[in-house]
Design a protein around this nucleic acid. Sequence first.
DNA 1: ATTTAATGTTAGCAGTGTAAACATGATAGC
DNA 2: GCTATCATGTTTACACTGCTAACATTAAAT
Lengths: 204, 204
Amino acid sequence: MKSYHHGNLKQELIDCACKLCERDGYTKLSIRSLAKESGVSQTAPYRHFETKEALYASVATDGFKKLSKACHIDADKKITKKDLVEIGCRYIEFGLKNANTYDLMFGTAVGNFAEYPELLESANSTYENMRLSFSKLASDSDDVIAFKCITLWSMVHGLVGILRKVQVVGDDFEEGVGPISTASFIAANLEDHLDKVLTGLIQN
Amino acid sequence: MKSYHHGNLKQELIDCACKLCERDGYTKLSIRSLAKESGVSQTAPYRHFETKEALYASVATDGFKKLSKACHIDADKKITKKDLVEIGCRYIEFGLKNANTYDLMFGTAVGNFAEYPELLESANSTYENMRLSFSKLASDSDDVIAFKCITLWSMVHGLVGILRKVQVVGDDFEEGVGPISTASFIAANLEDHLDKVLTGLIQN
DNA sequence: ATTTAATGTTAGCAGTGTAAACATGATAGC
DNA sequence: GCTATCATGTTTACACTGCTAACATTAAAT
């Protein structure tokens, strides 16, 4: 028989939320359905998440940790431009393969990261990872490193957004003109693309 | 006295929705509150918008038209790199100043633009505008023009996303380290930043 | 003038986030 | 070991949501 206390509800809710968010998009997720899924009463989740946004924040935190891992390059070996291209590619791959989670991480579902320390920390640490990689590429000043880092980040971040939008439409319109085919081409030749952009960035 | 038929409901709903979406974010918008605002019954909007997503699509369409206008450069005069920098700056400015509408345009609230012909058209026309500008910069092939165009677009699009995220947190953390200050710096020196990136892009 | 189609209203369903009051049971102090 | 405390779960309830079906009104078309 089931005991009154679940024992591991919080983590189970997060895990389940991550799964459902990625499968159906965070919009479709409801606290009540989540509770039902875990065989617990409708309002039980509120003992672990003050609001729905707090639950979103947990899912987003998980996302940043995964993104961090996906973009991590072993710190021992020297870092080259090629490695940075690799990081960029992995970033974009993550954004496209985990599109719904990515929405949660970079959309407006969670208004202010500062209200969720773990989220802020995991997001900053993702940035810090990238920053470290750039710092091992050349002996630039901190300012220059940060500048390059933000530039690459906004580049890949923007590409994820554009590629997604365009691909959704592309599913319906297979004709090979305009932004759709161009974006598809870029997606298929990501390495070359990022290499070009990074070359300009590094030489600057 | 009020007549049974409103006469101009659809447009009034769109206008009102645009205003409210931008003010509070599209999440806060409800069809019912919108109806009340226009002094009409709860379900009247359904005569003009099949679903809430269709209403969103109208707001997004409006947004793309405004973005198009904001980024339009007079076609008569020759186009220079400086003009493209200007376009990029205006794009980013639009994204930051109309952040909530921008969400609707590039987020997942409207799943597939192809289901809303006007939206698809206005979005494509925004792209087409940018493409035209690039075509007047140098005599590149269509492929190269499209490539440069998507690259700039994803660049500015990404910057909007990053700058927004970082600025929200920055409101709480004024300390001058890490991504926040860097992003702020980039935001304050947008022209220089875009110039650098475009220089690399055009020379390639 | 009469039919038809567009547009509006009313009533109602199923679902949502969240708060308040209460129940249960694990844990810490005596 | 007994008891008080507190974290965790439940019940009930409220106000809100998107959306549908059935009906009302009026403008437009025949």
